[in-house]
Design a protein around this nucleic acid. Sequence first.
RNA 1: GGCCCGUUCGUCUAGCGGUUAGGACACCGCCCUCUCAAGGCGGAGAUCACGGGUUCGAAUCCCGUACGGGCUACCA
Length: 503
Amino acid sequence: MPPSPRVRFAPSPTGHLHIGGARTAIYNWAFARHQGGTFVLRIEDTDPERSTRENTDAIIRAMEWLGLDFDEGPGVGGPYGPYFQTQRTQTYVEALDRLKRAGAAYPCFCTPEVLEAKRTTARERGGFAGYDRTCRTLDPDEAHQRIARGEPHVWRLKVPLDRGDIVFNDAVRGEVVFQSSQVDDLVLVRTDSTPTYNFAVTIDDATMRISHVIRGDDHLSNTPKQILIYEALGEPIPTFAHLSMIWGPDGKRLSKRHGATSVEAYREQGYLPEALVNYLALLGWSLDGETTIFSREVLKEHFSLERVSRNPAIFDVEKLDWINGTYLREMSPSDFAQHMMPWLQDAGLTTIDDYATRPDWYHTLAPRVAERVKRLCDAPALVEFLFRDTIELEPSSVSKALLSGDARSALRAAQAALTSLEVWRSQEIETCLRGLAERLAVKPKIVFQAVRVAVTGSVVSLPLFESLELLGQDRTAERIRAALEALDSDRNPADAASEPYAR
RNA sequence: GGCCCGUUCGUCUAGCGGUUAGGACACCGCCCUCUCAAGGCGGAGAUCACGGGUUCGAAUCCCGUACGGGCUACCA
């Protein structure tokens, strides 16, 4: 039985958790959970300019929100820590020492300017533009003296010249072959003695005993370099799995231009974590080609790298919206109400105390709203009329439903009928208004739309009878009164559509 | 420039030598209906990037070409 797999997600805290990063994290998490392995979170904070503590915290919070629990990492610790690269310098120093002792690394004194010049000419000639290995053949004694004199230098990997093809079996791409002659003697440690990215990840993955490296496609070309480092160190080479990129709708790299790119931004718009995970999981993986809605549980039960697709995917908010909507509609009334409350409060419509006072009222409202929103942030606009003291009548709705003589008289009659209604329940309200239409000999719709606009301000609203029930008899009467007054104060109804009707 | 990776309906995908190329989102139509949604039913939409092979047979295997992407830093 093979040892249980160890995988890691290694974001750099130079910003919030990106959608693409989140998907990588999801796949790593799902793989680990499916296999009964270990999921580690490692923070690649070696870029001091851009890395911040706030970003690290935000990334961890986003992962928690998504439900991606990790077994080792910041906060939870683990046997292979520390889990911040900036705290692992000793490990890199030791690794470089091992390489030096094994004769697999050598100092290079070439200046950046010289290197730049070499690169340019090499590229102009066409073909391979890697480092020409000048310092590789330096006399060891001379090199020592120059180091002793304090001459600036970097440490490079001494790539074996007779290595031949570097072949590895990528878990999603299949066999990938690089010629080792295409890999130059890359820099491992910089002049300021900090490790380069390729050196640091490899050392970290090796010392943390990572068995499967599941990461973005952009690292595919780095893989042969890293394999060479593993070999120089005599460490076992993990299985690699390279995930395709996520693109914006225009087929370009996903960026702010395309709208929200961070997990946090989606949370703020009222997307549910299970919906985001579901959608992102689907962006490059499929359960069976048929199933589109599945829980985290199902994901970890079925996830496999074999079913990860190789082609890049375009981020489609519309499908995310649909998935989010289905999750929203599946919620119980009280669950939905509780999720909706923060948005209503932020919009200044209500308070948590009000919810505590009359939970049933909110639970009646909840499913009517859930059926009509894609995101929680859409909720306030739908229910606003239930909370405000006065509403604005939408001019175009007024001209559609209130300007005809029939509509006006229907509204007037409705006011009277509703005011004298004895039982204020949607069922009775409906019966009342239908009866009214019959008596007036107008289509029921005329009455309904007139009342709807008077009460909600718009020709489009939540279901009318339930809305009236929730609004209450007195407030309903007041709304209709106000609407009639607004209409009457208009001497020239033809201008109505351009009037504000503030009431 | 060099080296790698990718290419199935608008989008996400199923397919792993023989299918009327399946599903989902979006779109269109009908039904339901107090508006909007939700839901139900149906429809349109893919010469499987292109060109060569291999094979009785190719979306599936091989080779090119085109297009897109990545790496090619003392960035990560």
